[in-house]
């Protein structure tokens, strides 16, 4: 495939990402302005942190007279899961040079990671051009929608009845289901969900993400057929 075709193949995958993340991005822009950020600062946050959930946590704390390092640490805690994405996807970036990794991994948000994993599962490779084909329009859209939300946020006042607050859980469920043909998928999902809820109730957000994730990963590492050497590596990736 030519580079141009690869780029467009990636770019086409941005549509569901933008539809699901769009209202959330607009809501972020609106809430950021409401909590005292300028539209410039809201867009700066989207452009440099580029991780919706942690941006929400950030603006929530800006309003509360909380020490700067606590805000930074909270953003880090919410985004800690990216370490796992990075470790997982990094095994498949053999064709990328160091600069491409340093640049491309900046864009490793949840849907970007999920789409990359899906591509591997379909037997594809993670070409840098394909990856940036998905990342470029997604990121530009995220910045635009943040700015629009910051400008016209009043239109979003009734986000509850529009279902915006629950749009992302539905979208993430769709991403999780996209991996349902992997071996040991259901045990991992069950244990992660249970551990996440318990951690959410006891330790609190955002640690439920890392704790729930580690529970599911440990389960797979110790008990999955792949870990116990019953499947070859390629079979472990996709079992249908």
């Amino acid at each position: 495939m030519s580079n141009r075709a690869l780029f467009w193949a990636g770019a086409r995958r941005c549509i569901p990402v933008c539809v699901a993340a769009g209202p959330f991005g607009a809501l972020f822009g609106a809430l950021a302005v409401e909590s005292g950020l300028s539209p410039f600062e809201a867009v700066l946050m989207s452009a440099t942190i580029y991780a919706g959930a942690s941006q929400m946590v950030g603006i929530d704390l800006f309003g509360q007279n909380i020490p700067a390092w606590v805000i930074v640490l909270s953003i880090f805690a919410v985004n800690f899961r990216h370490i796992l994405y990075s470790a997982s996807i990094g095994r498949h970036l053999g064709d990328w040079n160091g600069w491409q990794k340093a640049f491309g991994l900046f864009f490793l948000i949840d849907p970007q990671y999920a789409e990359a994993e899906r591509r591997l599962e379909m037997g594809g490779k993670i070409e840098f051009v394909w990856y940036m084909g998905l990342a470029t329009p997604t990121c530009l859209f995220w910045l635009s929608i943040t700015w629009l939300g910051a400008q016209f946020g009043n239109l979003l006042k009734d986000s509850h009845s529009y279902g915006i607050d629950f749009l992302l859980p539905i979208y993430f469920l769709g991403l999780v289901m996209g991996f349902r043909k992997r071996s040991f998928w259901l045990p991992v999902v069950g244990v992660s969900a249970l551990a996440a809820v318990i951690a959410y109730e006891t330790i609190g957000s955002p640690w439920h993400v890392s704790i729930g994730a580690v529970a599911g990963i440990m389960l797979a590492a110790f008990f999955s057929p792949q870990a116990r050497g019953k499947l070859s590596q390629s079979e472990g990736q996709v079992t249908s």
Binding site: A53, R81, L84, Y85, A87, S88, R91, D110, Y113, A114, E117, F166, L168, P169, F172, L173, L175, V176, F179, R182, F184, W185, V188, V189, S192, A193, L194, A195, A196, V197, Y200, S205, H208, V209, I211, G212, A213, V214, A215, G216, I217, M218, L219, A220, A221, F222, S224, Q226, A227, G229, Q233, G236, Q237
Partner: peptide, 27 residues
């Protein structure tokens, strides 16, 4: 060299991490 257990754990990352964002919201 990455041993099979770590491989298996890393292959479980998408389901394990993404689930944790859904579960408390549903709960």
């Amino acid at each position: 060299h990455i041993n099979p257990r770590i491989q298996a754990g890393l292959d479980a990352v998408p389901a394990a991490v993404l689930t944790t964002i859904v579960a408390p919201a549903v709960y």
